[in-house]
Amino acid sequence: MGLSEILAYSLGVVSITTALLVVFSKNPIHSVLYLILTFFSIAGQYVILNAQFLFIVQIIVYSGAIMVLFLFVLMLLNLSGDTEPQKDNVFKIISVVAGGLLFISMIAMLKGIGNMNLPASPDSQIGLVKNLGQLLFSKYVIPFELSSVLFLSGMVGAVMIGKKDAEDIN
Protein backbone atom coordinates (compact mmCIF):
# COMPACT_ATOMS: atom_id res chain seq x y z
CA MET A 1 0.00 0.00 0.00
CA GLY A 2 1.26 3.43 -0.92
CA LEU A 3 1.14 6.47 1.28
CA SER A 4 -1.92 7.87 -0.46
CA GLU A 5 -3.82 4.63 0.01
CA ILE A 6 -3.06 4.55 3.74
CA LEU A 7 -4.18 8.17 3.96
CA ALA A 8 -7.32 7.46 1.98
CA TYR A 9 -8.30 4.53 4.18
CA SER A 10 -7.61 6.35 7.42
CA LEU A 11 -9.58 9.36 6.18
CA GLY A 12 -12.38 6.98 5.27
CA VAL A 13 -12.36 5.57 8.80
CA VAL A 14 -12.42 9.11 10.22
CA SER A 15 -15.29 10.19 7.99
CA ILE A 16 -17.39 7.13 8.80
CA THR A 17 -16.76 7.39 12.55
CA THR A 18 -17.54 11.08 12.66
CA ALA A 19 -20.61 10.55 10.48
CA LEU A 20 -21.86 7.93 12.94
CA LEU A 21 -21.12 10.30 15.83
CA VAL A 22 -23.21 12.96 14.10
CA VAL A 23 -26.18 10.64 14.41
CA PHE A 24 -25.45 9.29 17.86
CA SER A 25 -24.32 12.30 19.86
CA LYS A 26 -27.02 13.74 22.09
CA ASN A 27 -25.98 17.36 21.96
CA PRO A 28 -26.96 18.94 18.61
CA ILE A 29 -23.91 21.24 18.71
CA HIS A 30 -21.64 18.23 19.02
CA SER A 31 -23.46 16.69 16.06
CA VAL A 32 -22.72 19.74 13.95
CA LEU A 33 -19.09 19.79 15.03
CA TYR A 34 -18.73 16.12 14.06
CA LEU A 35 -20.38 16.90 10.75
CA ILE A 36 -17.73 19.56 10.16
CA LEU A 37 -15.06 16.95 10.81
CA THR A 38 -16.80 14.62 8.35
CA PHE A 39 -16.74 17.29 5.69
CA PHE A 40 -13.09 17.91 6.37
CA SER A 41 -12.15 14.28 5.97
CA ILE A 42 -14.10 14.17 2.70
CA ALA A 43 -12.18 17.26 1.61
CA GLY A 44 -9.02 15.32 2.46
CA GLN A 45 -10.11 12.59 0.06
CA TYR A 46 -10.37 15.21 -2.68
CA VAL A 47 -6.80 16.31 -1.98
CA ILE A 48 -5.61 12.74 -2.39
CA LEU A 49 -7.38 12.63 -5.76
CA ASN A 50 -5.63 15.94 -6.65
CA ALA A 51 -9.05 17.55 -7.09
CA GLN A 52 -7.90 20.86 -5.62
CA PHE A 53 -10.90 22.84 -6.72
CA LEU A 54 -13.39 20.37 -5.26
CA PHE A 55 -11.34 20.29 -2.05
CA ILE A 56 -11.42 24.01 -1.55
CA VAL A 57 -15.05 24.36 -2.60
CA GLN A 58 -15.96 21.63 -0.13
CA ILE A 59 -14.19 23.62 2.59
CA ILE A 60 -15.56 27.03 1.63
CA VAL A 61 -19.13 26.02 0.92
CA TYR A 62 -19.79 23.17 3.31
CA SER A 63 -17.40 23.62 6.22
CA GLY A 64 -17.05 27.37 5.88
CA ALA A 65 -20.49 28.66 5.09
CA ILE A 66 -23.22 26.08 5.57
CA MET A 67 -21.90 24.61 8.80
CA VAL A 68 -21.24 28.06 10.25
CA LEU A 69 -24.89 28.88 9.57
CA PHE A 70 -25.93 25.57 11.14
CA LEU A 71 -23.87 26.29 14.23
CA PHE A 72 -25.17 29.84 14.30
CA VAL A 73 -28.79 28.73 14.30
CA LEU A 74 -28.22 25.95 16.83
CA MET A 75 -26.38 28.26 19.20
CA LEU A 76 -29.18 30.81 18.94
CA LEU A 77 -31.82 28.16 19.62
CA ASN A 78 -29.69 26.75 22.44
CA LEU A 79 -31.12 23.25 22.04
CA SER A 80 -30.31 20.62 24.60
CA GLY A 81 -31.60 17.21 25.66
CA ASP A 82 -34.27 18.49 28.00
CA THR A 83 -35.62 21.31 25.85
CA GLU A 84 -36.14 19.14 22.79
CA PRO A 85 -39.82 18.18 22.49
CA GLN A 86 -40.77 14.52 22.16
CA LYS A 87 -41.74 13.68 18.59
CA ASP A 88 -45.08 11.97 18.14
CA ASN A 89 -45.41 8.56 16.46
CA VAL A 90 -46.64 9.81 13.07
CA PHE A 91 -43.51 11.90 12.79
CA LYS A 92 -41.34 8.91 13.68
CA ILE A 93 -43.00 6.70 11.06
CA ILE A 94 -42.60 9.37 8.39
CA SER A 95 -38.92 9.76 9.16
CA VAL A 96 -38.36 5.99 9.10
CA VAL A 97 -40.02 5.76 5.68
CA ALA A 98 -38.03 8.70 4.32
CA GLY A 99 -34.75 7.34 5.69
CA GLY A 100 -35.55 3.87 4.34
CA LEU A 101 -36.19 5.27 0.87
CA LEU A 102 -32.88 7.09 0.93
CA PHE A 103 -31.16 3.88 2.05
CA ILE A 104 -32.77 1.86 -0.78
CA SER A 105 -31.74 4.40 -3.38
CA MET A 106 -28.20 4.36 -2.04
CA ILE A 107 -28.05 0.56 -2.29
CA ALA A 108 -29.31 0.80 -5.85
CA MET A 109 -26.56 3.30 -6.61
CA LEU A 110 -23.91 1.03 -5.10
CA LYS A 111 -25.14 -1.84 -7.30
CA GLY A 112 -24.65 0.33 -10.35
CA ILE A 113 -21.04 1.09 -9.48
CA GLY A 114 -19.83 -2.31 -10.67
CA ASN A 115 -21.02 -1.58 -14.20
CA MET A 116 -19.30 1.80 -14.43
CA ASN A 117 -16.22 1.64 -16.60
CA LEU A 118 -13.65 3.80 -14.87
CA PRO A 119 -10.45 4.65 -16.71
CA ALA A 120 -7.63 2.40 -15.60
CA SER A 121 -5.29 5.28 -14.78
CA PRO A 122 -7.28 8.38 -13.79
CA ASP A 123 -5.98 11.64 -15.18
CA SER A 124 -4.36 13.42 -12.22
CA GLN A 125 -4.88 16.83 -13.85
CA ILE A 126 -8.65 16.41 -14.24
CA GLY A 127 -9.43 18.10 -10.91
CA LEU A 128 -7.58 21.33 -11.66
CA VAL A 129 -9.62 24.46 -12.18
CA LYS A 130 -8.90 24.85 -15.88
CA ASN A 131 -9.95 21.33 -16.86
CA LEU A 132 -12.95 21.42 -14.57
CA GLY A 133 -14.08 24.76 -15.94
CA GLN A 134 -13.75 23.55 -19.53
CA LEU A 135 -15.83 20.48 -18.72
CA LEU A 136 -18.48 22.53 -16.93
CA PHE A 137 -18.87 24.94 -19.83
CA SER A 138 -18.80 22.38 -22.64
CA LYS A 139 -19.92 18.86 -21.85
CA TYR A 140 -21.95 19.57 -18.72
CA VAL A 141 -23.19 23.05 -19.58
CA ILE A 142 -26.89 22.15 -19.42
CA PRO A 143 -26.83 20.53 -15.94
CA PHE A 144 -24.61 23.38 -14.77
CA GLU A 145 -27.04 26.05 -15.95
CA LEU A 146 -30.00 24.05 -14.65
CA SER A 147 -28.46 23.95 -11.20
CA SER A 148 -28.05 27.71 -11.32
CA VAL A 149 -31.79 27.97 -12.10
CA LEU A 150 -32.34 25.82 -9.01
CA PHE A 151 -30.33 28.27 -6.93
CA LEU A 152 -32.26 31.17 -8.40
CA SER A 153 -35.54 29.53 -7.46
CA GLY A 154 -34.22 29.04 -3.94
CA MET A 155 -33.31 32.71 -3.73
CA VAL A 156 -36.70 33.78 -5.07
CA GLY A 157 -38.35 31.52 -2.51
CA ALA A 158 -36.36 33.11 0.29
CA VAL A 159 -37.33 36.59 -0.94
CA MET A 160 -40.98 35.50 -1.07
CA ILE A 161 -40.89 34.30 2.52
CA GLY A 162 -39.25 37.53 3.59
CA LYS A 163 -41.83 39.63 1.70
CA LYS A 164 -44.76 37.79 3.24
CA ASP A 165 -43.50 38.53 6.71
CA ALA A 166 -43.22 42.22 5.87
CA GLU A 167 -46.86 42.30 4.69
CA ASP A 168 -48.07 40.65 7.87
CA ILE A 169 -46.45 43.33 9.95
CA ASN A 170 -48.06 46.16 7.96
Binding site: I36, Q52, I56, V57, I59, I60, G64, A65, L128
Partner: peptide, 17 residues
Protein backbone atom coordinates in the same frame (compact mmCIF):
# COMPACT_ATOMS: atom_id res chain seq x y z
CA UNK B 1 -1.56 25.32 -5.48
CA UNK B 2 -3.85 25.86 -8.39
CA UNK B 3 -6.57 27.49 -6.29
CA UNK B 4 -4.39 29.71 -4.08
CA UNK B 5 -6.89 32.50 -3.65
CA UNK B 6 -9.71 30.11 -2.84
CA UNK B 7 -7.47 28.38 -0.32
CA UNK B 8 -6.96 31.70 1.48
CA UNK B 9 -10.67 32.24 1.35
CA UNK B 10 -11.44 28.80 2.73
CA UNK B 11 -9.11 29.12 5.69
CA UNK B 12 -10.24 32.64 6.47
CA UNK B 13 -13.77 31.31 6.70
CA UNK B 14 -12.48 28.52 8.95
CA UNK B 15 -11.14 31.15 11.32
CA UNK B 16 -14.58 31.77 12.75
CA UNK B 17 -14.73 28.25 14.20
Amino acid sequence: IDVGILYVFGFVSMGVY
